[in-house]
Amino acid sequence: MTPRSSLAIPALLLTMTVAAGLTACSSSSGKMPPPPGSSGSQPGDSYQQVIDGAPVAAASDIPAGSLMAKIKARGTLNVGGTDAAALFSLKDPVSGKVTGFDAGLTDMLAKYILGKPSVNRVQVDVSTREVLLQNGTVDSVIATYTITPARAQKVGFAGPYYSSGDAILVRSSDTGITQASDLNGKSVCTETSSTAANDIKQFAPSAKVVLFQTNAECQQAVEQGRTDAYVLDQALLLGDAARDKNVKVVGRPFTDEPYGIGVPLASPEMKTFVDNWLKLIESDGEWAKLWKATIGTELPGDAPTPPVIGSAAGS
């Protein structure tokens, strides 16, 4: 038999060739997200201006013994978030700065309490958000967190601060799908952990649902023609479409996903405090400026009217 060492080399070469080939393919079709700030409109400056111009709470708004007082004493806001949600909370791999609509609100809330945007961001996902709030690891969760009555049993929700919902992503060349009912008879993918699978079945009962693990895989499946459409929260789909011109988002959201700020159920004073802060930044135009500097860089038109605080079941 041939000695082992001489086998490893051709095998390794084969592996590397395959890997290199696929990498080349991927990058040629523009799958890598460009670093934030490199796309057309520069959110950087106006974004920082929004944070700089954000209000600070009066001392009388933070009563002794409240969670806000604890945060103030600690000097930093512990918040559950992410650094991988384009337009909402995305980390710049170079500067390490996290920016986006959610990230901006986080900085502004920290500034409102502490006078400076001092944030300790804890990475959360679908399965850890409630737990981290309940055990006090974080003071709040700002992470495209949909308010539902079931979740409201476990945590408190301030807001809603943004109205999103399931939308449809298709190939740019596709003109046959413009609304949810067009998905009937089509193959539609979504993320494994998303409840969008149920929404698809509800709005397009004869659609064939395919589950993939990640957002990138779902988007690629559409682009490669493996599935006809990709259904997920509009905010995330907009991020995909912004990165890749081969796909587009069509129609209005066909479900209602009100995003709220999660706070501990045991701290109702925090919920009231955050609600009042949201009302403040919505009325003084800060909310609209933040939208314009983040989501607005990928959506045409003026900032929408924010949802009414307390309007979602569970808020």
């Binding site: 041939t2 086998l7 095998a11 084969l14 490669q224």
Partner: peptide
Amino acid sequence: LAGAAYVTAFRNIPLLVLLVLFVFGLPE
């Protein structure tokens, strides 16, 4: 040599990685 190279290559890549490579790589 060909047989040995094949075995070395396929045995040393996790199945999940192979699946993603084939499912999303072949269409490319």
